[in-house]
């Protein structure tokens, strides 16, 4: 019994190694990119389109809508990053129905890598939107005293992102493994269904949180009353 797919190492040369996490990530990348390529190769711009194109259009427009609802006025700019986050995490958890599959998101290394990406992307988009000065100034809001707390919150939320996803994915796999030894019939299937659900929820949470962080970083001061307007509704 191992806690992380990192521990399954297929090949190693010094620091470089090929473990199950990387291998399954590549597999997922292949599936996602290859599938997209296959479907989008013959896109129709007419009124009639294929079912697969319809599915992808629903997915993309759905993600776009979610990003917009979070408060990012130009969703297409962030669609590449946030959409890929959601699709990767969701696919990784959906594929748990395949026997012998180890979700890469059940490895803390993967979730940490994703959290680091968010950690880098937030200031990247923030600076791009409002400039270095304004972005750095936002750490001293509302007062200068808040600077250390803001920095701590930045770091801690990244850690929380990584650990939350890792914990949920790992626990799902672990629970199924333990239940298989206790009640091998029926119950593991129910837990697998539950695992699929929690996986989807985690994918949604991860990408929405990332969107919220980016939105917070890119928001210029003036539109502060905006959330006030949406909340009472």
């Amino acid at each position: 019994m191992h806690l992380s797919p990192d521990q399954i190492v297929f090949w190693q040369y010094g620091v470089f190694k090929l473990n199950a996490t990387i291998a399954f990530t590549w597999a997922l990348m292949l599936v996602l990119a290859g599938g997209s390529r296959l479907i989008t190769r013959k896109l129709s711009i007419g009124l009639e389109r294929s079912r697969w194109q319809n599915l992808l259009e629903i997915l993309v427009t759905g993600i776009e809508k979610q990003i917009k609802e979070v408060g990012l006025s130009q969703p297409q700019k962030y669609l590449g990053f946030l959409g890929t986050l959601f699709l990767f995490v969701a696919t990784a958890s959906l594929c748990t129905v395949i026997p012998g599959y180890e979700p890469p998101t059940a490895s803390l290394s993967t979730t940490a890598a994703l959290a680091l990406c968010v950690f880098v992307a937030v200031p990247f988009f923030g600076i791009e939107e409002q400039g270095v000065r304004n972005y750095l100034k936002s750490y001293t809001k509302p007062t200068f005293i808040m600077l250390p707390f803001n920095i701590i919150s930045e770091l801690s939320r990244t850690l929380a992102l990584a650990v939350r996803l890792f914990g949920n994915m790992m626990s799902g796999a672990m629970i199924i493994g333990i239940l298989l030894t206790i009640t091998p019939f029926i119950f593991p299937i129910v837990m697998t269904v539950l695992g699929l659900l929690t996986g989807m929820v985690q994918a949604y949470i991860f990408s929405i949180l990332a969107a919220v962080y980016i939105a917070a970083a890119t928001r210029v001061r003036k539109p502060k009353p905006e959330p006030m307007q949406t909340v009472p509704a």
Binding site: N19, T21, E57, G80, F88, P104, S107, A112
Partner: peptide, 28 residues
């Protein structure tokens, strides 16, 4: 090492998805 590899993998995936999914679909 896995963290770095996964971060790189993720960035590559972002580029691939942009190239093969979002742009064509949005364009269509």
């Amino acid at each position: 090492f896995t963290v770095g590899a996964q971060a790189l993998n993720f960035l590559i995936l972002v580029w691939l998805m942009r190239r093969f999914l979002y742009k064509p679909i949005l364009h269509a």
